[in-house]
């Protein structure tokens, strides 16, 4: 079988044996893939730093039908997020984003736009001030929840006041406006009404998100961010 070459991002990784890693990748267009990365811990030769968190890479996967584990045989970095790695608040929020994506997408289809959504919000996380790192997390979770069928309803475009029940557009900088206001300047389409009523203050946002994720996943969920 030919290798699948596709952009990917690590959502989780677990040490296996002395030298290997089992990684959970979010791939662009092929959803979540669990794969064995042989010698990923023992040698930097094959993967370098490509298998760290917050690195988008071109994954070379040898897919195998379940229950056999696919193999990750290459990971060439495409994009990094150094701004996340240098700040504790961004690192914590970034890991919370990856964990939420992993948990929400475990049994759900993940089309290419979800991959783009995650990357866009990591990009946004790099640029928000440390006290606002909960906002990309909140928006990413709402965006994924909308994609997988949990759509909180009702909000308005901050530019014109029009309801966003037909969806919106993410601007460079993180605002969501309606399609009309975001025409030609939007970087990503946002599904209908995913941001309705979500609080933006940190403690309230984390509490809101905890309730939302708990309801969506059907089990108690803890957002690993400090509320203050």
């Amino acid at each position: 079988m030919d290798d699948l070459v596709v952009p990917g991002l690590i959502l989780d990784r677990v040490a296996y044996g002395e030298r290997d890693l089992i990684v959970t990748l979010l791939t662009r267009g092929h959803g979540l893939v669990s794969a064995m990365a042989r010698s990923a811990r023992g040698s930097r030769r094959r993967f370098g730093g490509g298998l760290d968190l917050f690195v988008v890479f071109q994954a070379r996967l040898r897919l195998r039908p379940p229950p056999r584990l696919s193999a990750l045989v290459g990971a060439d970095p495409i994009r990094q997020f150094p701004g996340i790695l240098e700040d504790l608040a961004r690192l914590e929020a970034g890991q919370a984003m990856l964990a939420a994506a992993r948990d929400l997408l475990r049994d759900a289809p993940a089309p290419a736009r979800i991959f783009d959504l995650v990357v866009a919000h990591l990009d946004r996380l790099e640029r928000v001030p440390p006290e606002a790192t909960h906002l990309p997390l909140l928006d990413l979770c709402l965006g994924i929840l909308a994609e997988v069928g949990h759509v909180p309803a009702g909000t308005r475009c901050p530019a014109c006041g029009r309801p966003l029940d037909q969806g919106g557009v993410l601007l460079d900088g993180g605002s969501i406006v309606c399609a009309e206001c975001g025409r030609d300047v939007g970087v990503l389409d946002v599904p209908p009404a995913v941001f309705g009523g979500a609080p933006t203050r940190r403690a309230e946002a984390i509490a809101f998100l905890t309730r939302l994720m708990t309801a969506a996943l059907g089990r108690p969920y803890r957002i690993p961010l400090r509320p203050e």
Binding site: F47, G48, G49, D76, P82, L85
Partner: peptide
């Protein structure tokens, strides 16, 4: 060197 190591 890989890009991640070099960048850091």
């Amino acid at each position: 060197l890989d890009a991640v190591t070099l960048m850091r």
